[in-house]
Computed example of a mutant assay.
Amino acid sequence: MVPPGVYAPQQDTALLARALSDESVPVGAAVLDVGTGTGALALAAARRGGRVTAVDVSWRAVFAARVNAARAGLRIRVLHGDLFAPVRGESFDLVLANPPYVPAPGGRRRPRGAARAWDAGPNGRMVLDGICREVPSLLRPGGVLLLVQSALSDPGRTVGQLRAAGLKAAVVRRARIAFGPVMRGRERWLRQRGLLSTTDQEEELVIIRAELAV
């Protein structure tokens, strides 16, 4: 179920789900899905035997994830809140993150409504930098972060910040996808910023995997 205003699972969701399928998820492993949307990734982790907590800043998304979990017969704890605020003091074996990462015009004002799922400030890092700062304290020894972002929002900076925090981090998957409605709507602005060439018609998505040493 995808209510109006809730981010529908798309290619970035599928790419992150494929990365999840490469991970060993022991039964009972503590999993956090931050920015869960409809709960698609949380459900995938629960089917693998994970003990899943899902978080979203949108009440509509929280409702959708709870309903989708109930329909699937899976037990998932779904919390409302911004990023990691609802799980302060907890730790996890696996963190999944599909944050907003699309560069957006309009300065650093916080997006509203459905745009909260994709708009991420002029450099696309309004949320990514916060994840890089906070996720190391949420991971258990041997814990893993799987994060999807656009190549437009500087994956090298993400990897560098995670490594500086003591994690082993690298890009492990890449995929090129045709522009969707959001990218098409700001294609001219992105070209003016030099984030797209005059011939680019596809966006590159990457999966970053980061692991905290045991």
Rank of each mutant, 00 (worst) to 15 (best):
T158H: 06
L205G: 01
Q149L: 15
L96N: 02
P111F: 06
A46Q: 07
D12H: 04
P3G: 11
R184Y: 00
Q10W: 13
P105T: 09
G73V: 12
Q10D: 15
A29R: 00
E187L: 03
Q192A: 15
A117K: 08
R125C: 05
D82V: 01
S150G: 13
R18F: 00
A61T: 06
F92Q: 03
A64N: 02
G124P: 06
A72T: 09
F179L: 07
A165K: 13
L83K: 05
A40Y: 05
D12A: 13
A175M: 11
R47C: 11
V25F: 09
A54W: 03
H80D: 01
A175H: 08
E211D: 07
D119I: 00
V6Y: 09
D56P: 00
E23F: 07
G180W: 11
P86A: 06
Y7C: 05
G106K: 10
G49V: 07
V182A: 12
P100V: 10
P141R: 13
R88L: 14
G194E: 05
E187S: 13
P26F: 09
G28M: 04
E204H: 06
V214F: 11
G106R: 03
D129G: 12
V87A: 08
V55N: 04
Q11E: 15
G194N: 04
L190V: 08
W118H: 14
V214G: 14
G73F: 10
A8Y: 10
G121T: 04
A8K: 14
A85I: 11
D82T: 12
M1V: 10
A104E: 07
G50S: 12
E203F: 08
L79R: 15
V95D: 02
A97D: 04
G73L: 08
V34P: 00
L195I: 05
L138S: 02
T38V: 05
A54T: 09
R163G: 02
G35E: 02
A104P: 01
F92D: 00
L145F: 11
G106S: 08
V62C: 02
V206F: 11
V148M: 02
P4T: 11
N98R: 06
A85N: 06
R176D: 13
V57S: 14
A117V: 10
A117D: 06
G50V: 04
L43P: 04
G142F: 06
V57N: 06
P122M: 08
E211W: 04
A17C: 01
S24E: 14
A42F: 07
R184L: 14
R193D: 00
R163T: 12
E187D: 14
R77V: 14
R163M: 09
D93Q: 12
P141A: 06
P105S: 14
V55S: 03
G113V: 01
R184G: 12
L145N: 09
A30F: 09
A61V: 11
C132M: 11
P141S: 13
V52G: 10
E23M: 12
P9D: 13
A151G: 11
V25T: 10
R48T: 05
S21E: 14
Y7E: 01
G156S: 13
S150Q: 03
L16Y: 03
L94M: 08
R188Q: 08
P26A: 07
P155E: 10
G107M: 10
A165T: 07
W189G: 08
M126P: 00
